[in-house]
């Protein structure tokens, strides 16, 4: 005959946390796959302009970034308040572009060197003077593929 036990303490069983690591690992892998390493610390203002006719940049490994903008407030005492070029983690002058392009090419495989794209990330509040000068330097360095960095409008 069935017995109905009725002891006073009714404890709720503890929730098993054995699957918690698995869940967190899943999240971890998701972020590892869908994000990229932050490559440089920004030293210039960089608010990209908005545009409608934009395309995603393919092949991250074949992109070299060139930043242009006003130096951030902490650098303005040393580097002035005119728009400046930033290459990697340093402020650069126009004369440095040739060497920068050469070193970027050097870092890629030989067969990929000609398909290197320069991603111009220019702050929307800069004037065209420095951009035009930069484009002339890129033409002199014979690095002709460029991308005007822009964000999707609406």
């Amino acid at each position: 005959m069935a017995k109905f036990k009725k002891d006073g303490k009714r404890t709720v069983p503890a929730v098993s946390t054995a699957s918690l690591p698995d869940i967190v690992f899943m999240l971890l892998f998701f972020f590892m796959v869908s994000t990229t390493m932050r490559e440089v610390t920004m030293m210039v203002n960089n608010q990209l302009p908005l545009a409608t006719q934009i395309a995603k940049l393919e092949k991250k490994s074949l992109v070299s970034n060139i930043y242009i903008g006003l130096p951030l407030a902490t650098y303005q005492r040393v580097y002035g308040t005119e728009p400046r070029i930033q290459l990697n983690d340093k402020f650069a002058n126009l004369q440095d572009i040739g060497a920068f392009i050469a070193s970027e090419r050097e870092a890629r495989k030989e067969e990929e060197r000609n398909s290197l794209t320069n991603n111009l990330k220019v702050d929307r509040f800069t004037t065209m003077g420095i951009v035009t000068d930069l484009k002339q330097e890129l033409r002199k360095a014979n690095s002709l593929r460029i991308n005007y960095g822009a964000k999707q409008k609406n």
Binding site: V24, L28, G149
Partner: peptide, 24 residues
């Protein structure tokens, strides 16, 4: 590990208008 990756990586995809400059 998760927090480390969240802090050091960015999610934004580069986009823009591709152009080819004329040779110098």
């Amino acid at each position: 590990l998760l927090v480390f990756f969240l802090a050091t990586t960015t999610m934004n995809v580069d986009s823009g208008m591709f152009r080819r400059l004329p040779p110098y």
